[in-house]
Amino acid sequence: MTTVMIEDVDPSSADRGVAAHYGDPMREQRVLETAVGLVDRSHRDVLAVPGEERAGWLHTLTTQHLSGLRAGQGSELLVLSPHGHIEQHAYVTEDGDTAWLDTEPGAGEGLLKHLESMRFLTRVEPRDAGPERVVLSLVGPGAADVVAGLGAPRIAEVPPPKFAAGSVLPEPTALYAVREFEGGLARRVPLGVDLLVPRADAEQIAARLGVPRAGLWAYEAIRVAHRIPRLGWETDHRTIPAEAGFLAGAVHLDKGCYRGQETVARVHNLGRPPRRLVLVHLDGVATDQPPVRGTPVSLDGRTVGFVGTAVRHHDLGMIALAVVKRNVADDARLLVGESAALIEP
């Protein structure tokens, strides 16, 4: 099996350290869409937060309702700036002794620094757990069958603007079932099942699962097609949760104070975020190369947004997630680099 690493094709990529593909990225995409494949995502940063006060402490620091998080549950969270801009995004997995946080490669250091600065007298001991644990992802409709006993992920509906106080349940808006298996933890997520396993045992566990390998290129293509945003790709320094698709899974709109809450509440009550996340189709006539992250999206000669992740999808062709101004119409004729582009409503 031919293994092509991310750094072989893009040495500067933040995703370096894992496989881009194993010789046939389009076939790997089809496996992830129709069956199940295993994706090495061991480049993600992992933090551990043990300590008896961890749930309530994370609840006060983040956008998610975590005060009642218990063993066998997982969710998502954001850390915001005082002005409500997204600074961090992480998945949380609770095993009864420790809350494990996994985040984007390179983001763990900043998240850990923030957590350490907010400890005060709280009985928690956040640490870098990258040397201990890594993330592997089972992706596809057959993922839950590989790790039995995990139901579908539950993501609550976003309440309408100016909803009645107390009408949102006091629990995580995204609730992902977690179970222990021989070798680690399995967390159900929208694209399949994420495995949090000891770094030293990762290859042995991957071989034992007995499912085909797929590279990160295939994973990213499926993620883009499902419009799932990624911190640092579909966000910039001024992105707020309502703009980039994080509101449903990572934000509880009716919980106690957290940094940036005023901006989140104000924008939601007005119902008019300045920008929105869209899926765009690129014509591929002028170039067959997907645009790089940050490529401007323009309309009638003026910039109206930027591209986050652009991919070649085995069925949809060249597509991308982009963040554009809210008033850009769905039928607008856009230009992304050299390519004409249309929004999929």
Rank of each mutant, 00 (worst) to 15 (best):
Val4Tyr: 08
Leu334Gly: 01
Glu87Lys: 11
Ser13Cys: 04
Gly106Lys: 12
Ala148Glu: 11
Glu76Asp: 10
Thr93Ile: 15
Leu38Thr: 07
Val304Gln: 03
Thr93Gln: 10
Ser339Pro: 02
Thr3His: 08
Ala250Arg: 09
Leu32Lys: 04
Leu253Val: 05
Thr287Ile: 00
Val197Ile: 11
Gly23Ile: 07
Leu342Asp: 14
Gly56Val: 06
Ala99Ile: 14
Asp254Ala: 09
Glu109Trp: 07
Arg227Thr: 08
Arg275Ser: 02
Arg275Gly: 04
Ala242Tyr: 11
Ala14Trp: 10
Glu171Tyr: 03
Asp283Asn: 13
Asp194Ser: 09
Ile205Trp: 01
Ser81Gln: 14
Gly56Leu: 07
Glu203Leu: 15
Ala242Cys: 09
Ala165Phe: 01
Arg70Leu: 02
Asp201Lys: 13
Gly166Gln: 08
Val328Glu: 10
Pro159Ile: 02
Tyr22Ser: 02
Gly74Ile: 12
Ser42Gly: 04
Val4Arg: 08
Gln29Met: 11
Leu77Val: 01
Lys325Pro: 00
Thr287Gly: 06
Thr309Cys: 10
Ala225Met: 07
Gly260Thr: 12
Asp24Asn: 14
Arg70Cys: 12
Ala174Ser: 11
Thr98Asp: 05
Gly184Ile: 00
Ala90Met: 00
Gly337Ser: 09
Asp315Gly: 08
Pro170Arg: 13
Leu247Asn: 11
Arg259Glu: 15
Asp145His: 14
His314Gly: 02
Leu175Asn: 13
Ala320Gln: 01
Glu125Gly: 12
Pro212Leu: 06
Ala20Glu: 04
Ile6Asp: 04
Phe181Val: 10
Leu247Gly: 12
Ala148Leu: 13
Val285Pro: 10
Val139Asp: 00
Gly142Cys: 05
Ala286His: 15
Ala144Cys: 12
Arg188Gln: 05
Gly271Glu: 05
Ala248Arg: 13
Thr34Pro: 12
Ala129Glu: 06
Gly108Trp: 09
Thr2His: 05
Glu220Lys: 12
Gly74Lys: 02
Arg41Leu: 15
Arg27Ala: 14
Gly72Arg: 00
Arg199Gln: 07
Pro241Ala: 03
Ala329Met: 12
Gly96Glu: 03
Leu69Tyr: 09
Pro170Glu: 07
Gly317Asp: 15
Arg266Lys: 14
Val135Glu: 05
Ala340Phe: 12
Val304Asn: 00
Gly108Lys: 08
Arg213Gln: 03
Pro159Arg: 01
Val139Gly: 03
Pro172Val: 01
Trp217Phe: 14
Leu321Thr: 00
Leu335Ile: 13
Ala332Leu: 06
Arg154His: 13
Val304Thr: 03
Pro198Lys: 09
Tyr91Pro: 04
Gly215Asn: 04
Pro170Leu: 02
Lys113His: 13
Met318Pro: 11
Ala99Pro: 04
Glu104Phe: 14
Ile343Leu: 11
Glu33Asn: 10
Ser12Trp: 15
Glu234His: 06
Gly305Val: 04
Ser81Trp: 12
Gly166Val: 08
Ala202Leu: 01
Val124His: 06
Val292Phe: 02
